[in-house]
Simulated scan of single mutants.
Amino acid sequence: MTGESSIPIDVLRPKTTRRVGCWNVRTLYQTGKLAQMVREMEHYKIELLRVSEARWTGSGSKQLASGHQILYSGRTDDHHSKGVAIITTKEVHRSLLEWKPVSERIITARYNSAFAKLTAVVCYAPTDDAEDEEKISFYDSQQKVVDDTPSHDVLLILGDLNVKVGKCNQGKETIMGQQGIGECNNNRESLCTFCQENDLVIGGTIFMHKDIHKTTWNSPDGHTKNQIVFAQHNQFDHIIINKRWRSSLLDVVAKQGADVGSDHSLVLAKSKLKLRKSRKKDQRPPPINIQKLKDTKTMRSFQLKVQNKFSTLMEHPDEIDMETFNNVLI
């Protein structure tokens, strides 16, 4: 696990709305592409952006001329394929506690907060037609990352998961809503099982928007469309959040106007930390102050009341039942 030395700030606050993005940009291994992405981040006021198909090799951390920070994880050979990255503003980077380049498909980062720390998992899943062994390996790695995440953390999984979850949520009401689009693909069951086992919610399926603001991928023929899932999606890129902090996810929407020359749309999520209200302890009546009985006048008054109560009972002993007895004592 790689750490970053800084003076941590609170990335999540009850009164601060954070804007998180999710985008498959197809490549960062192209002159001018990174600068173009930063401009779009500034335009949409995005503070943390997940990037897939970065196509950078190795792993590392770099500060950009704009002040943004990029963490990246790629292949260990010289092949410029796959690769994931996290780009954050300077302020959000100051809250970084630690980060880990897991593989060319997964990178994690944990950010500080006084109330609940944020763990962001950025991923790029195998396609629907990939070998089963590759898919199983990916979800095994994802599961280990979730297992290693502290249970109190706000967990956001941000990625191109190559999953179309569709509209129907029958039998899966706990992990998704009915705001998906299109039909599902074969990868759906793997993602749904993963979410059910880890109490996760697919954010892009629970917020009502027009279909154009749910579509996250356009096919080359211009007709086939898929929806992205934000981990807090017919859906390739998704934002997924752990159910414990579901109320902290305010919105997930696709922005068709953002452009970096990709066939995927930018997915924008808004999040504000919502704390649970603490339950008040049961209010119990104050204890009886027996010290008052030391006063002669008070003691006689008390004795008289007790005698009157029991004299009422003794007038009709045959009619006494438990309910009558309790009513007299109250």
Rank of each mutant, 00 (worst) to 15 (best):
G177H: 04
E4F: 15
V163R: 07
E173K: 10
V38Q: 05
E134P: 07
E197D: 11
R276W: 06
I239L: 13
L329M: 11
P285V: 06
T119G: 08
L304Y: 11
F138M: 01
R18V: 06
M1I: 14
T16K: 12
L250F: 00
G203D: 07
W56S: 09
T174R: 14
E183N: 11
L249I: 04
G58Y: 07
W245I: 04
Q196K: 12
D263F: 01
G180Y: 02
M41Q: 07
Q30W: 08
H43F: 04
D318G: 11
Q227G: 14
D237F: 09
Q291V: 13
E189Y: 09
Q307S: 13
Q30M: 12
I175N: 08
V51P: 05
D148E: 14
K294E: 12
T215Q: 07
E134L: 14
T174C: 12
L156T: 06
D129P: 08
K274P: 04
N112K: 08
N112V: 01
S81Y: 07
F138L: 04
A269R: 08
L273Y: 03
S271A: 08
N112P: 03
P285I: 05
I320P: 11
C22Y: 05
V20R: 12
H79Y: 11
P150M: 06
R94I: 07
S66I: 05
K280E: 11
K15C: 06
T193I: 14
Q283S: 12
H68P: 02
G222M: 04
V20F: 04
E173V: 13
R94Q: 08
E42K: 15
T127K: 09
